[in-house]
């Protein structure tokens, strides 16, 4: 009748893995994806969620089983077994987390690279991505100094990727207490909302006027602190038309919670229409009272 414990362990392991895979694949915790970054991020999330579920269920299952199976029966005042350690067992449960962590680390490095994290160390405000890739080396050397040797302004790179070869839409973002202001240098438009065309890379050049803010679009899975004294670039490509919230994610004062705006992703002709209707370089629809 006795089933070998090795077999039971194997079956439990398989069941846990299947449960983890199912949960990771079917439980949706993230908002919809609207940038080229987002599906890459979501793939990482699914892997982490799957591994996390397997570990959590396994450990909690073991804990609850132990508490039930080995609970002290009334009237029993004896001791358990005097087992003080087991070296092979210790090696196994050192090795398993080490391997898992190493795998997750390498995988997330890959994701980070695909999101443009490692190549985003822009310099000199250059907009040409091919040239920038070549400059990464130089920039990382220059990073030791706070300004470049030639005295030019240092631009910090945030995470972000762009569709290679496509024209990049530059937008200047100013973050201040308690609003974001978007300026389109090509057309001279200044607005309180960010309008971008679907499928085109957008490069934000962000500056903060007063305190630290953070630019976050949850649907783009992108966030970048906007730090006074550190102009920062952030690049993304919207992939889904719609209106999404822009949220300030760094405590910036009393109205921090009200420092919200929207990013509107237009179909290309819709974006042209928006440009046309706003082109007469009207002064900013100044978001003087951005909180309500």
């Amino acid at each position: 009748m006795a089933i070998p414990s090795a077999l039971i362990t194997l079956l439990i392991g398989i069941a846990l893995t299947l449960a983890g895979l199912w949960v990771g694949h079917n439980v949706r915790l993230l908002p919809i994806d609207a940038s080229a970054n987002a599906p890459v991020y979501d793939a990482l999330f699914e892997v982490l969620f799957t591994i996390g579920t397997i570990l959590f269920l396994g450990i909690v299952g073991l804990l609850v089983y132990s508490l039930v199976r080995f609970r002290r029966r009334s009237g029993d005042s004896g001791d358990g077994l005097a087992i003080e350690g087991n070296l092979p067992l210790e090696i196994v449960w050192t090795a398993i987390p080490a391997v898992v962590v190493l795998f997750v680390g390498i995988y997330s490095y890959d994701i980070y690279e695909r999101m443009g994290g490692m190549a985003s160390f822009h310099d000199h405000g250059a907009h040409d991505h091919a040239a920038m890739a070549a400059m990464v080396q130089e920039a990382s050397v220059a990073s030791a100094a706070s300004t470049d040797p030639d005295g030019q302004e240092r631009i910090w790179g945030g995470i972000g990727q762009s569709a290679s070869g496509a024209a990049v839409l530059p937008v200047e973002v100013t973050a201040m207490q308690f609003a974001f202001i978007f300026h389109y240098p090509d057309s001279g438009i200044t607005a309180g909302e960010l309008h971008v065309p679907l499928g085109q890379s957008v490069q934000l050049r962000m500056e903060a006027k007063d305190v630290i803010h953070a630019f976050w679009v949850p649907q783009f899975r992108l966030k970048q602190d906007v730090i006074p004294g550190q102009p920062t670039l952030l690049t993304f490509t919207p992939t889904r038309a719609g209106t999404y919230p822009i949220v300030c994610a760094e405590l910036c004062g009393p109205y921090h919670g009200g420092m919200r705006s929207s990013v509107v992703v237009h179909e290309p002709d819709g974006f042209d229409a928006w440009l046309q209707s706003n082109r007469p370089a009207q002064v900013a629809q100044a978001p003087a009272a951005p909180f309500s």
Partner: peptide, 19 residues
């Protein structure tokens, strides 16, 4: 601890940092 290991991954953290 599991959410901590997730947060240690830069790409994951970029989205949920300060949330």
């Amino acid at each position: 601890g599991i959410t901590g290991v997730a947060l240690a991954q830069v790409p994951f953290d970029i989205h949920v940092h300060d949330t």
